[in-house]
Simulated assay, not measured.
Amino acid sequence: MTGVWALLGALAVAGAIGVLFKVREGRISRRDSSADSMDLPVPVRDLLAPGVTLVQLSTTFCAPCRHAKVILRDLADRTDGLTHAELDVTDLPDVAAQLGVMRTPTTLALTADGTEVLRVGGVPKRDSLLAALQPHLP
């Protein structure tokens, strides 16, 4: 009987962890506007364009990264002042660590001067992301 209770407990904990991950997927974190702009690594600085650049940090074998790429590229193609760039951090763990990236895909919205205005962990939700970016677009 103890084994049944242990199994039920393990299933409950696993279910709670799954719900937590689902809730956090695609959540937008806004940066404090009074915060200093971070010192960006060179590979990221080289990707910046006028307006807002969505820098997608991905890894080679990340399936959600491909889905995020489709959403971000389409959003950038349809929105003036918005650019999409992808950086594979598989071989650049120091870049990911410097940016505080713990998972892929992670998307950083950066202004032309390198100020981070928001970040998204996981696959972004198109409408929520566009609404959060509106104040920063021309």
Rank of each mutant, 00 (worst) to 15 (best):
E116H: 03
R27S: 05
Q134C: 00
A63F: 09
P43Y: 08
R119F: 01
L48I: 10
P138M: 09
P41L: 08
D91T: 12
D88V: 07
G9V: 08
V95E: 01
V120M: 03
G100F: 08
A16W: 14
A112T: 09
R27D: 00
R30A: 09
G121F: 10
P105F: 07
D74R: 15
A85L: 04
L130I: 08
L20W: 13
E86M: 12
E25H: 07
L57R: 03
S128L: 13
L133P: 01
T2P: 01
D32Y: 04
T2C: 02
T60N: 07
T90A: 10
L8S: 07
T106C: 04
P50T: 09
S34N: 12
L108M: 11
R126D: 11
D77Q: 13
R27H: 05
G26H: 06
A112R: 10
G3T: 12
S33M: 11
T83H: 15
T107R: 00
D127Y: 05
A97Y: 06
R103G: 11
A97P: 00
L20A: 14
P41I: 10
M38I: 15
P135M: 09
D46W: 06
R30Q: 11
P43D: 05
H67Q: 15
A76H: 05
A63W: 08
P43M: 10
S33Q: 13
L129S: 05
F61Q: 13
A16H: 06
R24K: 13
D36M: 13
V120K: 01
G51R: 09
T79V: 07
T107Q: 03
L108Q: 01
A49H: 12
F21V: 12
L133R: 02
G122Q: 03
P135Q: 12
L118W: 04
D39L: 14
L40H: 03
R45P: 01
S34Y: 05
R66H: 13
T111Y: 03
S128K: 15
A14L: 14
T111N: 02
A10N: 03
D46R: 15
T106N: 02
E86P: 02
L47A: 05
H84Y: 14
T60D: 08
T107C: 04
K125R: 15
